[in-house]
Design a protein around this nucleic acid. Structure first.
Lengths: 127, 127
DNA sequence: CTTACTGCAAATATTTTGCATTTGG
DNA sequence: CCAAATGCAAAATATTTGCAGTAAG
């Protein structure tokens, strides 16, 4: 565990859902010389070690979070970009049915669920 | 509706889930001079017109399909890359619960569900 | 020492944009 | 003719890779 890798892990842990670029910015607040490729390589390594995970929440870059911070679905609002977390158990029904019907074992955490959040729906109603 | 746009629509319709690059290749079989930027611009326009849609099935480029060909979830196998379609109604339970609990209105079609397909699970068991 | 890690620069891959040319109404 | 669409080239974005220098065991 090098200093750079520790900084990457700390950044991911404190940022929540961070893109590699956001991690880079945070890491550089602590150590200015760190390069983007080190971020990518560290994230990959930390994922192999099971310390962090990545998810695809939208069309942009993937986001990373600490492995300890898992067990939830990501609800991604297309309108305002907000990301809401809900317990992954809410999808247990769907996951179970998919497995029974097609034999497919789903990982609902890896991708975000796109849609529109309550606030944006309300704003659209008011407009 | 220009000749290029018609070719793009035809390509999307016949290819199923195609990336912009796959659409380009198909279009060039009919008209060799077509440029990639025309593909992107045509897809965008056709989506505004409601004739095609795009989904994010994995970490790579988005894929496009005819609007007539919708109403299903995409089950994307991480292991072999296969894409299985199942009726979107299977997710009605989850969608309803998310809306009731958090006010979030989900579009389950827009993102693929990652996981492992039955074949790859079987292969892993045999190995 | 020597193996592994890092920074740097360049290469990839994907998508977007500006602009001159062409096309179709 | 005029407005819109296209092709082309370059820019923008995101990520990966080769390589040489650095650092830690």
């Amino acid at each position: 565990m090098t200093p750079q890798r520790r900084l990457v892990l700390d950044a991911v842990s404190s940022l929540g859902h961070a893109t590699p670029d956001e991690v880079l910015v945070r890491v550089r607040e602590q150590a200015s010389g760190v390069n983007a490729s080190t971020i990518y390589r560290s994230l990959e390594l930390l994922e192999e070690l099971g310390l962090v995970r990545h998810s695809h929440l939208g069309s942009g870059p993937s986001t990373w979070h600490a492995a300890s911070h898992s067990g939830h679905l990501h609800l991604v609002c297309r309108s305002c970009g907000s990301v809401t977390e809900v317990d992954v158990s809410l999808a247990a029904d769907l996951v179970g049915r998919l497995e029974r019907d097609t034999g497919f074992k789903s990982d609902m955490e890896h991708f975000g669920v796109q849609g529109t959040c309550a606030d944006c729906l309300a704003a659209a109603r008011d407009a």
